[in-house]
Nucleic acid binder design. Structure first.
Lengths: 256, 256
DNA sequence: CATAAACTGTTTATAGCATAAACAGTTCAT
DNA sequence: ATGAACTGTTTATGCTATAAACAGTTTATG
């Protein structure tokens, strides 16, 4: 759009707008539209009809404008999507640990709280999960969420790259667990699960797939499947794994 | 296409073909095309130009046919994608544990080997990672990979749903780690990483983002970032977490 | 104050996409 | 031999993102 800030053009799509760069404009007709208004409309649409319903034409129509009008405010649809995701994450809102006591280390409580909080954002805007992650977080709200997670990990004896790796993996873990839970919830649990298992038993070779079949024969499964606690399970496993690393480190390299 | 098998139509897209159902055909012109041939061409295209280059028209053109000819063999593009992914996974090929001795439990060795093997498939056909996971595995090769992973977990004292959850999370973990590594590798490491960090320092507020900035100031990071060992790190953490659960349960996994 | 630059929104147009429908040719069961 | 069943093509439809040209509006500058 404008290239008054010469570096704004080289930024990844959406990032310049997301950070409030651009806009030295003064001349010209007053704008009725704005990135914020477009993004809001697009989010409303995605919330109610899914990400696949979001097309430039449809968003513009919902706003009462033509498709091309959006391009006066956004360089591309990609840019719109980036801004939508950033806005949908929003400010991290989980209460900062009110110094409550428990028998577990504070990094664990904090991390768990972070995970549950961001899970809620995914559940509020499930279409975020339909937008593929492209690289490291670069938008303001994503970086704020990362910041909060890193603060939870701060009291930890992990190295910088271990912290970063752990944080990114925790984010991935919440993302994929929530996606799995929502996918399963989409297909009406009882009937669809029966159908799936029935399919397996019809198609699988009892020899080549003995473990799969054994698993799905287990009566315990159906019960747990409804619980939808994949996130908690995976999270606690991963936290245990991090804790094991910390313990091992504390006992082995004392001096450092 | 044909509904001689009345249930074949109600199967998810691609599944019927993938399992070799359908095809009672005898009359009519001999087919030059086949699902297998189409899928092979599409995979070649995706390997060389990425999944976004795969359109019905382009695949048909590469084969020397018209777009619509493909629809005589596949119900939809979705079906093509399902078959592509299944074929790209292929048969699990990692050598079955040659009873080698080590100080760690066999489930751990087996799981790690499984993870590295499937990582190689992702690296061979990175576009698999661009196809979103929709639900539980239902195609033959995906189920074979799941079977192998469950066999590695078999000697474990985990319950059925714990095994299933662990397996699915391990699959997710390898998937997202590999995706991260490939994403980073795509953007030529040295320059792009510098640019990213530079961007952060330009945009972030030192107060609101102190942990993020602190992390990226750490000289240790740049070194590790090249190593590209996100998968190993996350994997070992998760395996440690699983082991902690088993130990807590006070069960012993004897070396196989 | 007039003019030109800069801006916003619209119209029109293009190239790509998946896929429906109708048709022509081929092969086999009857 | 005849017709059903099959394969591949042609033609057409309604989406998609977005480029280009144009008209109107505002404001900074001559």
């Amino acid at each position: 759009m404008q290239q008054k800030k010469p570096d704004a053009t080289k930024l990844p799509p959406g990032i310049a707008i997301a950070w409030g760069l651009e806009r030295p404009s003064t001349r010209g007709a007053k704008a009725e539209l704005s990135p914020a208004r477009i993004v809001k409309a697009a989010i409303g649409l995605a919330d109610s009809e899914g990400l696949s319903a979001v097309s430039m034409a449809r968003v513009a129509k919902d706003l009462g404008f033509t498709s091309m009008s959006l391009y006066r405010h956004l360089r591309s649809k990609e840019e719109l999507l980036v801004l939508m995701v950033d806005a949908a994450f929003g400010e991290p809102d989980f209460a900062a640990s009110p110094a409550i006591e428990s028998d577990e280390p504070s990094w664990r409580t904090g991390t768990r709280r972070w995970a549950k909080a961001i899970e809620q954002r995914y559940r509020k805007h499930p279409w975020i999960l339909d937008y593929p992650v492209t690289g490291p977080p670069a938008s303001p709200h994503e970086l704020l969420w990362l910041e909060q997670l890193l603060r939870a990990l701060a009291p930890t004896p992990l190295t910088a790259s271990e912290k970063l790796n752990s944080a990114l993996m925790l984010a991935n873990l919440v993302r994929s667990s929530t996606r799995m839970e929502l996918d399963v919830a989409d297909n009406d649990s009882p009937a669809a699960f029966e159908a799936y298992v029935g399919l397996l038993f019809k198609l699988l070779d009892p020899q080549k797939h003995r473990e799969v079949l054994g698993l799905f024969s287990d009566p315990e499964l159906a019960v747990m499947e409804d619980a939808g606690d994949e996130l908690s399970f995976a999270l606690e496993r991963y936290l245990d794994g991090m804790e094991a690393l910390m313990v091992r480190r504390k006992s082995i390299d004392r001096p450092d």
